[in-house]
Design a binder for these strands. Structure first.
Length: 593
DNA sequence: GCCGTTTTCGGCCCGACTGTTTTCAGTCG
C-alpha cells in the first residue's frame, strides 16, 4: 500500500533528529550512542541522492549508510502506515515547541526543554515576553548573559535564516577579509577553510585559518574587521564575527609548526574528519587540530604536523584534494593510492553553451554579446572551440517553416563566421559549432522540426517549464527528448536554481542508462546560481562512466569567466580530465560530433 | 542503534567557547 503523501528526505531527517533529541531528554548518558546513530542517520538521509521512499519501494534502504536493521524497520512502518509507534512513544511527552525552539542556533535540547517546561512557552512570542520580563535569567543555571544570548539568537532567527551564499559571492567576501588579515604582520600563512575551501556550491559560514607568531593578537585584529557588525566569540584559538546580512565569519589561529593539522581539521567536511579519526584510532592514533597523538590519551605523545601532505602521509595516505573530503570514498581511495587526478580549469578547451545576440526570435532570453566578441573572448581563454546555443525560436510565434528559415539563417551566419576567423582574423585551429538549446516540452517533444534540426552540428536539450511533473512523467519526458538523434547534451539537467527552486524529480538510474546507451553528455552548468548537475550526481555519473561537459550558459560575455565554478563542481564529483568532453582538443572532438 | 583493513562484540572523533560554575554543562562545528 502506498501512503497518499510522500515524505521527503528533509522531513525524514528532521524526524530522526527529533527522535535523537527525545533520546537525549530521556537519558543523555544511557542513550548516548542512539543519539549519535540517529543524528548520523539524519545526516545521511539528508545527503542521499535518491528519495528514501523510492529506495524503500525498491527495497534498497541498505544503500543508505547509517540505516541499520532497527531504523529500517521503523521507516518501513512509516512508509506503510504514515507513522512509527516507537518514534511516537519516544516523543509523546515532549511538547512540539521543544523541537521548534531547537531550531534557534545556540538553543539545544536541554535549554529548549527547560524553557518550554518551566516557563510554559508555547510560541516564540511567549518566549519574547518571558525575556522582556526577565524570567529566563531567573531560571536555575541561567543568568542575565544567557538571557541576552538567547534574545539575540531569537532576533536573528526571526529575520529568517539567511539563504546560503552562492560560491562566488562568498569567495568575494573571503578575499576582502584575507586582505584585512594581511595587514597583521604576525600572520605567516592563511587559508580559507570549510565549505569554501571544499568549493561547495553554497556556503553557510566563511572560515579562515592562520599561522601566526602571535595568535591572540591576530584574533583581536580579526575582530576589528571594519565591516563586522558584531563579535560573536573571541578566545585564544578562535574568534567569530558577524557581517551585515547575518554572515558569520570564523577565524582559527595557531602556530606554524602545527598548521597542517589545523588546516586539515577545519577544512572538514565533518563526515570526512569523523571517518578519518575513527580510522586513525584503529591504528592507535588520535587526530586533532593540534597534531597527532601517537598514544591516545597521552598528551605528551603529540606529534605536531606543519603541512597537510605530512598529515595524510602520517596515516599512509595520499593528500586528498579538499573538494573530495566528504567521506564518499576518498579515504579508501587515498589508502589504496587510487585518488582521481581531478580536472583543472586549464584543461578546458571550449564551451558548448553560449547565447549570442544573434536574433532567432527565441523562446527565452537572448544573449547580449555579439558572436564576434564572444569568439575573441574564447580565443583569449585559449579555447579551441565554442558552440552558440541560443534558445530555440519561440513555438507560439512561428510556424515550422519560419523556424526552419531562422535556423538556416543562423547556420549561414556561423559558416561565414568560421570562414572569417581563418581569412580575416588569421586564426587557425578554432571552430564555432552551430548548436541550439532546445526546450523539452512537457510531453517530451522538441519544438524544432527535423529540417531545422538538420541545420545543427548538435543540440542541447533542457527543461524550462512544468517543473512539477511527477517523477515518472518527468523521466519519460526527458528520455524521449534524449532519443532525438541530433541531441548530444542534456543541459542543466535538474533545472534547479539555488535558493530559488529545487531540482526536478527524475529517475536518475534511467537517465544515466540512456546517456550511456546513446552517448549523451550531461552538462555541468557553471552558472553560479545553477551549478547543475549537482556534485553528488556528477559523482554517480562518473562512476557509471558517463561523459560530461562543463558549460557557462553565457548570456553576457563576462559570464564566460564562470567556467571555474563549473570546474569546482566537476572536481567535487570526482571528474578527471578524461570524463569531461570539452577538455578534448578540436581535432579529437570533430571526430565525435 | 550502527558497523567491521586487528572486532558479528565492543567499540563509537575531538576540542573550543560561553556562562554559570568553583569543576562542569550545553552547544557548536
Amino acid at each position: 500500500m502506498k501512503t497518499s503523501k510522500k515524505m521527503t528526505n528533509l522531513q525524514i531527517a528532521e524526524l530522526l533528529r527529533d527522535v535523537a533529541a527525545a533520546y537525549q531528554l530521556k537519558d543523555a548518558n544511557k542513550y548516548k550512542f542512539q543519539v549519535i546513530a540517529y543524528q548520523r542517520a539524519a545526516d545521511s538521509v539528508e545527503h542521499a541522492t535518491s528519495e528514501l521512499q523510492d529506495l524503500w519501494e525498491e527495497k534498497k534502504l541498505d544503500d543508505v549508510p547509517g540505516l541499520g536493521k532497527s531504523l529500517q524497520e521503523h521507516l518501513d512502518e512509516i512508509f506503510r502506515t504514515g507513522k512509527s509507534k516507537h518514534f511516537e512513544e519516544l516523543t509523546k511527552d515532549i511538547p512540539k515547541m521543544v523541537f521548534e525552539l531547537m531550531k534557534i542556533p545556540g538553543i539545544g535540547v536541554k535549554t529548549s526543554m527547560k524553557l518550554v517546561k518551566e516557563l510554559k512557552i508555547k510560541n516564540l512570542d511567549e518566549l519574547k515576553r518571558a525575556i522582556s520580563e526577565s524570567k529566563v535569567a531567573k531560571l536555575e543555571g541561567f543568568g542575565v548573559d544567557s538571557q541576552e544570548r538567547i534574545s539575540k539568537a531569537l532576533k536573528e532567527y526571526e529575520k529568517k535564516a539567511p539563504a546560503r551564499m552562492l560560491l562566488p559571492y562568498a569567495s568575494q567576501i573571503a578575499s576582502k577579509i584575507l586582505e584585512w588579515l594581511k595587514e597583521d604582520k604576525n600572520i605567516e600563512i592563511m587559508n580559507t577553510l570549510g565549505s569554501l575551501r571544499r568549493q561547495v556550491s553554497t556556503i553557510g559560514d566563511i572560515d579562515f585559518a592562520v599561522a601566526s607568531k602571535d595568535p591572540n593578537y591576530s584574533l583581536t585584529h580579526f575582530t576589528k574587521y571594519p565591516k563586522a557588525t558584531r563579535i560573536l566569540e573571541k578566545g585564544d584559538r578562535t574568534a567569530s564575527i558577524l557581517l551585515a546580512g547575518n554572515i558569520r565569519v570564523d577565524l582559527m589561529a595557531g602556530k606554524k609548526e602545527s598548521y597542517g593539522s589545523l588546516l586539515q581539521h577545519f577544512t572538514g567536511g565533518k563526515n570526512h574528519n569523523v571517518a578519518l579519526r575513527e580510522y586513525a584510532l584503529k591504528k592507535g592514533l588520535s587526530l586533532s587540530d593540534y597534531g597527532i597523538y601517537t598514544k591516545p590519551g597521552d598528551k605528551k605523545s603529540l606529534k605536531e604536523i606543519s603541512t597537510e601532505e605530512e598529515f595524510y602521509k602520517f596515516l599512509n595516505m595520499d593528500w586528498i584534494p579538499p573538494e573530495l573530503r566528504e567521506n564518499s570514498g576518498e579515504i579508501e581511495a587515498s589508502l589504496e593510492h587510487k585518488l582521481p587526478k581531478l580536472v583543472e580549469l586549464q584543461d578546458i578547451k571550449g564551451d558548448f553553451h553560449i547565447h549570442s545576440d544573434f536574433d532567432i526570435e527565441t523562446s527565452h532570453d537572448l544573449g547580449s554579446s555579439s558572436m564576434v566578441d564572444l569568439v575573441k573572448k574564447a580565443i583569449d581563454l585559449n579555447y579551441e572551440y565554442i558552440a552558440f546555443s541560443e534558445h530555440n525560436p519561440s513555438k507560439n510565434k512561428h510556424n515550422e517553416n519560419e523556424i526552419i528559415d531562422l535556423l538556416k539563417k543562423k547556420k549561414d551566419t556561423i559558416d561565414k563566421l568560421n570562414y572569417s576567423i581563418v581569412k580575416d582574423m588569421k586564426i587557425r585551429g578554432f571552430k564555432v559549432f552551430n548548436s541550439l538549446e532546445i526546450d523539452i516540452l512537457p510531453d517530451g517533444k522538441l519544438p524544432v522540426p527535423p529540417e531545422g534540426m538538420n541545420t545543427l552540428d548538435f543540440a542541447l536539450v533542457s527543461i524550462h517549464s512544468s517543473f512539477g511533473q511527477p517523477r515518472e512523467d518527468m523521466t519519460n519526458r526527458v528520455l524521449e527528448a534524449l532519443d532525438n538523434p541530433k541531441v548530444k547534451i542534456f543541459a542543466h539537467p535538474t533545472a534547479r536554481k539555488l535558493n530559488e527552486r529545487n531540482g526536478v524529480d527524475l529517475d536518475w538510474k534511467k537517465i544515466f542508462a540512456k546517456c550511456k546507451e546513446k552517448d549523451i553528455w550531461l552538462e555541468i552548468n557553471a552558472d553560479p546560481a545553477r551549478l547543475d548537475l549537482p556534485d553528488i550526481l556528477v559523482h554517480e555519473a562518473v562512476k557509471k562512466g558517463i561523459k560530461l561537459v562543463i558549460d557557462t550558459d553565457t548570456h553576457y560575455i563576462d559570464s564566460m569567466d564562470n567556467m571555474k565554478w563549473g570546474v569546482s563542481v566537476a572536481r567535487r564529483g570526482w571528474c578527471e580530465k578524461s570524463d569531461i568532453i570539452n577538455t578534448r582538443s578540436l581535432k579529437d572532438l570533430e571526430v565525435m560530433i
